[in-house]
């Protein structure tokens, strides 16, 4: 039994196989529902996790998804951090272009994830890896 009074805490999911994508989004789903997100937002968050986790797997073979509940100035939220030590992204600007990423699923799907979430940041160093953070705030 989980103590109902305990605040939800951070969840880490290592990503190394395509089954891990499902684990990550199921954990994200549960956490988002617990934080009080609407059913549509829960699906948005789970889908964003799915996209980010698949990027990790496709471009870096392995990495991690971290799900962090947020509580700031009376509103709560969730931040998804996807990090890997893969080859990195040479041209972030290009990766964030819509046409580049949604045409038949050739790209990273990052602009789509940005649309699903409220805040989005990406840091990448070629040869070192990539970290994407995406935040969603709970609507009152």
């Amino acid at each position: 039994m989980v103590n109902a009074m305990a605040p939800p805490c951070q969840v880490r999911v290592p990503i190394g196989s395509d089954g891990d994508i499902i684990v990550a989004r199921q954990k994200g789903r549960a956490l988002a529902a617990e934080l009080g997100f609407s059913s549509t937002d829960v699906v948005r968050i789970a889908t964003a996790i799915s996209e980010l986790a698949r990027n990790v797997l496709t471009y870096a073979a392995c990495g991690e998804i971290r799900l962090q509940p947020l509580n700031c100035r009376n509103r709560c939220g969730i931040v998804i951090v996807a990090s890997d030590h893969g080859p990195g992204i040479a041209d972030i600007e290009q990766a964030m272009q819509d046409a580049y990423s949604t045409s038949g699923g050739l790209g990273l799907g990052l602009p789509g994830v940005r649309r699903l979430m409220d805040e989005f940041t990406i840091e990448s160093t070629v040869g070192k890896g990539t970290t994407v953070s995406a935040t969603k705030w709970c609507r009152p």
Partner: peptide
């Protein structure tokens, strides 16, 4: 397709 899923798909650009 569930309503929430449909909404998310179009927002994602799918």
């Amino acid at each position: 397709v569930q309503p929430e899923v449909a909404l998310t798909m179009v927002q994602l650009g799918l």
